[in-house]
Design a protein around this nucleic acid. Structure first.
Lengths: 74, 74
DNA sequence: CCTTTGCTTATCGATTTTCGATAATAACGA
DNA sequence: TCGTTATTATCGAAAATCGATAAGCAAAGG
């Protein structure tokens, strides 16, 4: 199996969830994506994101993309 | 033709480019994407972005995703 | 005029990836 | 023993990136 490539983008869903006192499942329902896909996103397994999904997350978490995404040069 | 759907995500490449005194063409060369695709991104015509592209942009512009992406509720 | 530079727009096709559905598993607590 | 929550995997369809290419426009400079 090829090694997992890491581009340096981090998705800080954990932090936001904790700050909002919300579970991943709750967020999934509100945002309209499955908890499975949200889990993938949260654990940095996603390689891209649709702006529609990013917008829905920002809307429900009342935050900006910058609160969700971080770049960590390796 | 179906109306352009707007999810509220804005890509502030203009601002970053101006701050860095860089042209879109120059950035395209450094990042490794065509100027065509960068133009699409800059004018909010993209519906998604790969993290590899986002990371490359952040690297060359020495910025964070939050500097590049904004969410503007409609 | 003519050329160059910078940017935009469009189309095509290949490739990549999301995303939903589903299922299996595990940890935790009541 | 349940129920909740989360993770991981697989499958398939739909969506979108992205490169290549071409055409066009505007501005600047000769």
């Amino acid at each position: 199996m090829p090694p997992e490539e890491d581009d340096g983008i981090r998705v800080h869903l954990d932090r936001l969830l904790a700050e909002r006192g919300m579970t991943l499942t709750q967020l999934a329902e509100r945002v309209g994506v499955t908890v499975v896909n949200l889990s993938v996103l949260k654990n940095d397994r996603a390689r891209a994101i649709r702006f529609s999904t990013l917008a829905a997350l920002c809307r429900e978490l009342r935050c900006q993309p910058g609160d969700l995404l971080g770049y960590e040069p390796e």
